[in-house]
Nucleic acid binder design. Structure first.
Lengths: 148, 148
DNA sequence: TGCTCCATGTCAATATTCTGACATACTCCT
DNA sequence: AGGAGTATGTCAGAATATTGACATGGAGCA
């Protein structure tokens, strides 16, 4: 339809390529999570809780890169489905530490396997060493951005 | 608040770090684009049109990683603001080739400078060679994902 | 103690995006 | 010529996320 530009293309921009890969990952994750009845956001929440039991809503939101309000909805729906549990009132401050139920842990295990396969597939063009280097380079940028 | 885990952390996942950097980039872009009255999606649209004049709505949507319907709204608002122009009826098929107006080109130039600076800042922890390598590695994954 | 400042959870309203659907226009193939 | 298949633009509804706001609980400090 359009002639392929050889120069001045957006592929020259690291940001654009980054977005491209991230979009591919999101789509692929959505496809494998849908059969499990999970959205990507819900999976992210479960995965975070699996690795860091007791995280509060706000903390989950930060680590999943959404607002507190969005994460709040995610938590409610997961709680309705019995995948996680929250205390009725806070012990210390206002934070309500959340934990996975047995059902939640089970669902997470399934989802985690599927997502890991998707990720492995997406980054398969790179060798293990290259993947590690990629992860470290990205982590360096992320750390610097936080410090900013 | 929580003790820092040394192992089994999500930072071991390339996908998570990828999302982290992408979120940082999106936030930073939003901050510099807001004073110009642009959203990230609107900027992406302008940038694409600047590099590929005459792209259709559907084509823009694909390259910006959103649906046709979402891009349609973006185009309308930008057209209302006089930043771009679309023919009233299609010449060939149904596709309406879009082009930037003078005002659109001007706005794009401002935005482009700002975004370029943001990107440069974000990836500053990496050397030029490392940035090029990062871009190539990501591009390899993206190409493989498309071929899928 | 009293005051300020900050973090958290949550409500309401708005904005954005996606899903599903439909008509139109072209291409390809028979 | 005609029919299947595909791509595009667009409408309507639902799902999702965000912004703005408020009350509560705790930490830090004079």
């Amino acid at each position: 339809m359009e002639q392929e530009e050889t120069v001045g293309d957006l592929d020259q921009s690291v940001g654009y390529v980054l977005k491209q890969v991230q979009a591919s990952l999101h789509t692929a994750m959505d496809e494998v999570l849908r059969p499990l009845g999970l959205t990507v956001a819900q999976y992210a929440c479960l995965e975070l809780l699996g690795r860091h039991p007791g995280l509060s809503n706000s903390e989950l939101a930060r680590r999943a890169f959404v607002t507190r309000q969005s994460m709040n909805l995610v938590l409610r729906r997961l709680q309705e489905r019995g995948l996680l549990a929250r205390p009725d009132h806070a012990i210390h401050g206002r934070a309500l530490p959340t934990e996975l139920t047995r059902a939640g842990q089970s669902t997470l295990r399934e989802a985690s396997v599927a997502v890991r396969a998707v990720e492995q597939q997406l980054f398969s063009p790179l060798s293990q060493a290259q993947q590690r280097r990629l992860r470290e380079d990205l982590a360096a940028c992320a750390d610097a951005a936080i410090a900013n």
